[in-house]
Nucleic acid binder design. Structure first.
Lengths: 350, 350
DNA sequence: CTGAAAGCGCTTACAG
DNA sequence: CTGAAAGCGCTTACAG
């Protein structure tokens, strides 16, 4: 077990002053006689005194800590956003308490309850559905400041940092259309646990409609395609969906697994089938061929959300219930090519 | 700002009893008159009372929180281990405070100081060098319990959960040798910030020696090969290293980036050059060809380390200063093939 | 079975 | 410029 740490009282005694003085030395600001200050500082060093955040928090009613709740740590898109959160928090002297929900909505409320009991002052989080969320309702009720990341609330105004999922996916879809694709299929991780995925799907629909192309049935999967069973399932779905020439996946990780599965099924990517992702995880750019995707700068999203949250917290100001849209960028990659059998010249759908 | 939470005093007053009784209801164990208990429970519910961990910690001198320090969140191998840490912590009612060091040794001590001031009871961490670590020395001096993950301390005995880096890499190297490779090059992320990488290199050396093959100069890189400059550098190194037929990378992420770079340089993997990784990140299995690697089960490492730490913490027992070696598994993948130009029959180096 | 009281480690008006 | 004292939200011997 840990040895008992020195307390402010012990420092005061050893330095021959009051705890108030030690406290003032630690926290700066107050006027202290220079000699006394040195004595105290020396004593602090000698005893290896480290102020206890618990004692301080109880008195100040501030913990300088925030919670961070994400669906999963094993999807790099979330790990990257946390990386941004951690960087900003550290820089400002705040601590991050981490919790993962494994995409289960019930766990969101549990995680919040648990973090609130730890006296966090605010939260950065990604939830299942920001427009129907008991977890966020709880935060609103208790007036706990938070900023959403990735989520894009449509109905209830809530603070969020995200890309415009629909319009970015729409633009991506338009690229495919320009390359002659008409049989484009949207491949989704479970819609029910991702508002992002649903928004992106809407962008796909809009682009298809605008191009006069018929939307194909969504291929909704609840797996990353890594097993033989998954591959068989995927093969069946492709056929029954009507042999798409392009698959737009709702996120990068899914896209990467789909590409591997397709290859094993004998499809060439992108010659036979084009595949696109969404997120911009760093690994996508390290693949060969590099993944074609929309880069929403995951780390930056985390950075920006945390800056926003902390500036509110540090100024004791409310956080505007608005969406900060971050720029996205089309990353060409090489998993996207012209539709098979298509002539050089662009055929415009009438 | 957050609305002021109900306190135990308010609950006591509303329920018409003492705070001691409320405390007993919350914490269970004590005998309470059934009607009183119900009244208190009802009041707690009505006021939405949530005990403050700060108040409790100050009194009990236990925070039920642990710190987790890792080099980086954007390498999935660490994100996965944290995932394991978080799962176990949550299951046991503990909270995880997270900090990243960006592979900078100085930041390790900073992170520890910061977390200790937050009154964590123990730590899970991966450091630069467990055999020469001011950070770990600090923990030892203050008798703060911790368990290392991935690190493999050789000199000073310290609690760690890891694979046997040398012998696993040795076995991996033997596979390459069996496939006829002799010009095998070890590609390392910066040695100075990874004891794992150095240990793995030793395994490579041992296997090469045992096979009577000459070890080639290490290709030490301080980048993930993602830019044109990196590729040029890599190309030069390959030539000056003596055109290896196989590259053994110190970790999966590096291997993945090297594979992409090789492809862009015109090498076919594995036909011209075989490449192997180390770690077993999930993404490696989703690539095509799948990455050949040693799977050290990153999530399980985190799980096991945390179980170990928490069992020590909960029983107030010291943690043995020993290494728990976890099983590793060779994952065949498809980035490894016979050495180019090699006949079916195995030529044994004399 | 229950409560009054002390005290965990701090900070901060208040007084001097 | 400095200190005595109160109090933040809890838990826990102690007494009854």
């Amino acid at each position: 077990m840990a040895s008992r740490r020195a307390t402010i009282g012990q420092v005061a005694e050893a330095a021959g002053c009051s705890t108030a003085t030690v406290s003032r030395v630690i926290n700066g600001g107050a006027m202290i006689r220079p000699e006394l200050r040195s004595t105290v500082e020396e004593t602090i060093r000698r005893l290896g005194y480290r102020p206890s955040a618990v004692g301080r928090s109880l008195k100040t009613r501030r913990s300088r800590s925030i919670g961070c709740i994400i669906p999963s740590l094993t999807n790099p898109v979330f790990a990257s956003s946390i990386s941004g959160v951690e960087m900003v928090a550290r820089k400002h002297g705040w601590t991050v308490l981490l919790s993962a929900t494994d995409y289960q909505r019930d766990r969101e409320t549990d995680a919040i309850e648990s973090l609130l009991s730890r006296d966090i002052e605010g939260l950065i989080l990604t939830v299942t559905n920001p427009d129907d969320s008991p977890a966020l309702d709880l935060l609103d009720r208790e007036k706990v400041p938070y900023v959403l990341v990735y989520n894009e609330p449509l109905v209830k105004p809530r603070p969020a940092v995200t890309v415009d999922n629909a319009s970015s996916t729409r633009q991506l879809t338009e690229k495919l259309v320009t390359l002659g694709h008409r049989r484009i299929c949207y491949v989704a991780g479970r819609f029910s646990s991702s508002d992002r995925s649903r928004r992106r799907y809407e962008g796909y629909l809009a682009a298809m409609a605008a191009a006069g192309a018929e939307a194909m049935p969504v291929i909704e999967v609840d797996y990353l395609a890594t097993t033989e069973d998954h591959r068989r399932d995927l093969a069946d779905r492709l056929v029954s969906a009507g042999k798409p020439t392009a698959l737009m996946c709702s996120n990068d990780l899914l896209a990467i697994s789909i590409i591997a599965a397709l290859r094993q099924l004998g499809y060439r990517v992108p010659k036979d089938v084009s595949v696109t992702g969404f997120d911009g995880i760093a690994l996508g750019g390290m693949l060969s061929p590099a993944l074609t995707t929309i880069d929403q700068q995951p780390t930056k999203l985390g950075l920006q959300a945390t800056q926003w949250l902390l500036s509110g917290l540090e100024q004791d100001a409310d956080i505007d219930r608005e969406i900060q849209f971050i720029d996205f960028e089309f990353r060409p990659g090489a998993t996207l090519a012209s539709a098979p059998g298509r002539s050089r010249k662009v055929r415009r759908a009438s």
